[in-house]
Amino acid sequence: MSQFLQLLFSGLTVGATYALAALGFSMIYNASGVINFAQGEFIMLGGMVAAVLTAAGIPLPLAVLAAIVVVALVGLLVEKLAIEPARDADITSIIIITIGVSMIVRGVVEVTLGKGGRALPHFSGETPIAIGGATLLPQSLWVMAVTAVVVAALALFFGRTRVGKGILATAHNRLAAQLVGVDVKKVLLASFGLAAALGAVGGVLIAPIATTSYDAGLMLGLKGFVAATFGGLGSGVGAIAGGLLLGLIETMTAGYLSSSYKDAVPFVLVLVILVVRPRGLFGLGPSERV
């Protein structure tokens, strides 16, 4: 029983990090129909900037805040310099541009911040919380709680605010949105800034548990993308469900079957789901935009 509980906790911790990564993918997909493969780099950048700042003696809360702001600015810059000039290109080209952006970001970080791994202090200590024979790190609770808050905030933003609705409208039909007065250019800019900030939040939350390095974004981006497709691209609830499920399946496979199959089982499941239900678990409507 305590073994199951431990695996459950582990799965939820890992799953919450995947969910945070998946949310960023959904965010930009919602605004533009583009899958932003630089999302993983935003996550890495958040963790790296915060780690560098705390190592330089800046207090943790300030460093975290600064990291989120810096990464949001990078997101805006990416949109301005790489995405906007290509706005008339088709979506596949833009997706390829995001892959290029991810390589540039990774390279710049490798050269400027170094190749070594970095760790961020835990937000509220490293003493594990014992529940029924299993243990959980306080940082895991941070990850889960912030993920929940972010989902709720995003739901409010897209459902209740003019800007949020504008973003959704633009994604649905760019021309129509433009005709009713939505500033399409600004929408795309805002969504990149927001997704980058979201990635940074994930990055600083995960960094104490998982450590970070210039190439950490590759794996997180990949798992986040899988989680997002699993749950249904563009759906906030889907991103969370996809992330948590992916994490749980991974740890349960490692715990009860064998760790050799840990990475294979979720990918096989995703393939099955995409065959049976191409839009993902919570995706709405046929995904003609891809």
């Binding site: 073994q3 695996l7 582990s10 799965g11 998982a210 794996m219 997180l220 715990g255 050799s260």
Partner: peptide
């Protein structure tokens, strides 16, 4: 047991 070089959590294998 095994783990991936980029895994963020290995508690499942360790629990086993």
């Amino acid at each position: 047991e095994t783990y991936g070089p980029k895994d963020t959590d290995v508690t499942a294998q360790l629990t086993k």
